[in-house]
Each structure stands twice: as C-alpha cells, then as structure tokens.
Computed example of a mutant assay.
Amino acid sequence: MRPLNRPIFLNIFKIIEVINMSKVIHNFAQRISRETGNNETGVIVFGLQSLASLIFNYVVLAVLSYFLQVFPHTIIAALASSSLRIFSGGSHASSSLRCTIFGTLVFLILGRIAVTLAFFTSTAFFLSLGISIAVLATAAIFKYGYATTHKKPLNSYAHGIKLRTIAITVLFAWLAVILYLSYFYILSLQSRVFMASALTGIAWHTFCLTPWGHKVNQIADKQMQKLRL
C-alpha cells in the first residue's frame, strides 16, 4: 500500500479544522443576528473571524515569547504595530495561517532587538530615535496609507484622510509616552523596555507600509507556499 503523503495528510486536518471553526462562527453569527435583529450576518461573521484570528495570533505570540524570554518586548511591539495598522493598513499574507507564522517570527525578532535597545540609558538616544521613527512613520502613513478598507474602496476621499489622521494621532500618542519616559524615567528598566519595544513595533509597521515592506512580505509568502503552509 502506498504511504500517505504527509503534507497532504496534514492539510486535510487543517481543512477540517477551518471548516469546523467556520461553522461555529457562522452559527454564532446567526444567533447574534436573531437576538439583535441585525440582518447583516456576513458582517458579523467577518467581525467574529477577525476577532478569533486576532486572539489566536496573540496567544501564539505570547506563549512563544514567554518561553524565549522576550514576552513584554514582543507583546508591546505587536500592540504598537497593530494599533497603527488598524487605521493605515500595510502588507498582508495570502492566508491567515501564513500571516500568523510570518508575524510571529517577525515580532519575536523585534522582541530580541528591543532587549538590546533597552540596555541604552541615554535620554538623547531614545529622543532622537523616537523622533526619527515618528517622522518616517508620519511620511509613510500619508504616502502609503491604504486607499482601501478590507479590499473595498473607501466611501470618499475624506474617509481616507480621516483614517490617516487617526493613525497619526495614535502615532503621536505613542511618541508622547516615549518622550515622557525617556526624559523622566530613563533609568527605569521597565520604561526602557517599553520605549524600545514600542519603537521597534512602530518601525516595523512603517516598513510594512512601503513598497519594500510589501516586497518582503510577498517573498516570505511565496516561500511559505512552497513549504505548503
């Protein structure tokens, strides 16, 4: 008897898992729709899928970063990046699984970089680094911030400006906290961990907005496809 191809065998279980999860989400969405009187079940399903994916991604990231001893660095970097990505977009993988794998790998690396940066005790270092990254991030958001939301055209030009404005506001909020900590609490290791982690997350998001970021994501995506992930 011919042995079963292992990658295909694993893919079968992946498909079954996705189908079962989709069924659970769809049933839950229908229940919410009935109880709230909202007939847009598709929108509810999309929201639940996004929430489930977000929770799963952070759980995986939290577990791995904990064992690699970069938990606070990794989570803060991910939160900083995600808070900007919501309003300004960025490069995407072709599937949620590839997004989880690539994102987890990237943020674990960023966490390790943040560990190194946190050793610096110079206020001038964090001030200059924070302002430099903020300037680049602002330019990237205005130039490359997405013109579509969930692959659908924005309702108007004003809508796009509004999203970019919110993203810039969130960016400046992060920067304000970083500048405050760098000036008043530079000797605190916890403060330096927060600043270093947030800056690496913002820097990565800035890169993801650019054509180079999209190119790197495409290369990683193709490699994962070759590995049948």
Rank of each mutant, 00 (worst) to 15 (best):
M1S: 07
L4R: 04
F9T: 11
F9K: 06
F9Q: 09
L10V: 15
N11S: 09
I12S: 06
F13T: 04
I15D: 11
I16N: 14
V18D: 15
N20P: 10
M21R: 14
S22R: 04
K23R: 15
R31L: 11
T36Q: 03
T36L: 07
N38C: 09
N38S: 10
N39R: 15
N39V: 15
G42V: 07
G42C: 05
V43R: 08
L48H: 02
Q49P: 02
S53R: 12
L54F: 14
Y58H: 13
V60N: 05
L64N: 01
F67S: 07
V70E: 03
P72T: 01
I75F: 02
I76N: 03
A77W: 03
L79E: 04
S81L: 11
L84I: 03
R85A: 12
G89T: 00
G90E: 03
H92E: 00
H92G: 00
S94D: 08
S94A: 10
S94V: 06
S96H: 13
R98L: 11
R98K: 14
L105Y: 06
V106G: 01
I109A: 14
I109E: 05
G111M: 04
I113E: 09
T116I: 14
L117H: 08
F120P: 11
T121Q: 05
T121G: 03
S122W: 00
F125T: 02
F125N: 00
F126Y: 07
L129T: 02
G130P: 03
I133A: 02
V135G: 03
L136A: 04
A137I: 07
A137G: 06
A139N: 11
K143G: 04
Y144D: 11
A147M: 09
T149C: 10
K151T: 11
K152A: 10
L154A: 06
Y157E: 15
H159A: 12
L163P: 08
R164I: 05
I166H: 01
A167L: 02
T169L: 11
T169P: 02
L171K: 05
F172S: 11
W174E: 01
V177M: 11
Y180N: 13
L181M: 06
F184L: 12
F184K: 10
S188L: 14
S191F: 01
S191Q: 06
R192T: 07
F194I: 07
S197R: 03
A198M: 09
L199K: 02
G201Q: 00
H205R: 07
C208S: 15
L209G: 08
L209P: 07
T210F: 02
T210N: 05
P211G: 06
H214Y: 12
K215D: 15
N217M: 15
Q218R: 12
M224S: 12
Q225P: 09
Q225H: 13
L227K: 12
L227H: 13
